[in-house]
């Protein structure tokens, strides 16, 4: 059931939020610059995947599997991407992504002072707390 980390990427490929589950992997240090580039590189890979797809209207990368983690990605119709890195034993990462998307709609988008496409800051307390609860439970 372990979720290691979450990235939210806006439609132009900028990372607007990252979350690292310190309990699950205390040795990973979150490094803001590295996170930005990791997110953006994933965005590029995603775009590349849709481009090289032999069939039109490819959905891009949805799942990426490795021996000790899986990456699940949710692309919303508006172009925002959410991806979580979880333990391979996690039962339903897609449902988790959907929940995170709903949380983002509620607590970020509906805040009139939030500028669209801009980074979500740590002081957005409700969002961070609810997210933490969702991820670390």
């Amino acid at each position: 059931m372990v979720v290691y980390s979450l990235y939210i990427i806006n439609k132009s490929g900028g990372v607007i939020y990252t979350y690292f589950n310190q309990k699950a992997s205390p040795q990973t240090k979150s490094n803001a610059n590295a996170n930005l580039s990791i997110g953006s590189v994933f965005h590029s890979l995603f775009t590349m995947a849709t481009t090289i797809s032999p069939v039109q209207n490819s959905s891009g990368i949805q799942v990426l599997e490795a021996n000790n983690f899986t990456l699940h990605c949710l692309l919303t119709v508006t172009g925002t991407k959410f991806f979580v890195i979880t333990d391979p034993s996690h039962p339903d990462p897609q449902a988790l992504l959907q929940q995170i998307y709903e949380l983002y709609c509620d607590d970020i988008l509906k805040n009139p002072f939030y500028d669209l496409e801009q980074p979500i800051y740590r002081h957005d307390k409700t969002f961070v707390l609810k997210l933490q609860e969702m991820i670390e439970k």
Partner: peptide, 16 residues
């Protein structure tokens, strides 16, 4: 509108 549309999509789960 540009904020509400995500709410609509998340709520209804509609696709393209």
């Amino acid at each position: 509108g540009i904020r509400m549309v995500d709410e609509f999509l998340a709520f209804t789960g509609l696709n393209k």
